[in-house]
Design a protein around this nucleic acid. Structure first.
Lengths: 124, 124
DNA sequence: CGATTGTATTAGCGAGAGCTTATATGAGTC
DNA sequence: GACTCATATAAGCTCTCGCTAATACAATCG
């Protein structure tokens, strides 16, 4: 399932919002989301599976519970796809990127970070 | 239709990629996408409608043609929703955001000033 | 062990998204 | 007006997604 399809579902988006604040057990997520959307435990569990399988979340067993964590990979893909569009609503991004490139060049003597399109800027 | 559902479709994503490079007539978009995905003119036109109605594209009449442009609003919403997650794959983003916010505040006050690095908290 | 709690899985159903075919609309041309 | 080109819309089909109900599995506790 494509990353954008994963985010297409409101229940899954809500779960991710909860996970953004930190880990949650399946039970906690179910509790929250079940009432909010009026769906069953089974439905929530199925959504959790989708999130796991598409790189948006991971789970580890902790006693009888399953603790879920946010996993960046899925959303990073989405973010990456949006890169070429971003300049349309952040006009200064282009200039910023240029400046970043400059900064990075200057800085490369000491630090090397193969991070992608994302802006870093700490100029003083 | 929710913004994420709009981006869930590969045909619509492709159209948006084309529009990111600049305006295209419906015909040009159709031509490109039709062959690539093996769908009809009608199908493409229906996708264009979705893009229009959800704030991802706009069209103007130019003679008998319809010229489509990328429209930022739809994707801006998506981008905004992702904000709280972004720190998970760009650890240094937090600092950057602070700085940008500062710059933006300064700019709104005196429109054409490059960011000054030593401003104090100014309320607005 | 059996019972209990927490979570996942399966089977089956219904709604809706995306498709095609056919048709409508609308601008330009003779 | 009749015709053509460019695009949109309508009707109907199909297949996928998200749901429920029922069940399975796994850890813990008596």
């Amino acid at each position: 399932m494509h990353a954008f399809d994963v985010l297409g579902d409101p229940v899954r988006r809500r779960v991710l919002e909860l996970l953004a604040d930190g880990e949650r057990s399946a039970g906690e997520l179910t509790e929250a989301v079940m009432h909010e959307f009026g769906i069953t435990q089974s439905a929530v569990s199925q959504h959790l599976r989708v999130l796991r399988e598409s790189g948006f979340a991971s789970s580890r067993a902790e006693g009888p519970r399953r603790v879920y964590s946010f996993e960046a990979e899925g959303m990073r893909q989405v973010d990456e796809w949006m890169t070429p569009f971003r300049r349309y609503w952040t006009p200064r991004l282009l200039a910023l990127e240029t400046e970043i490139a400059r900064g990075r060049r200057a800085e490369r003597a000491s630090d090397d970070e193969p991070q992608n399109t994302k802006e870093k800027e700490e100029r003083e």
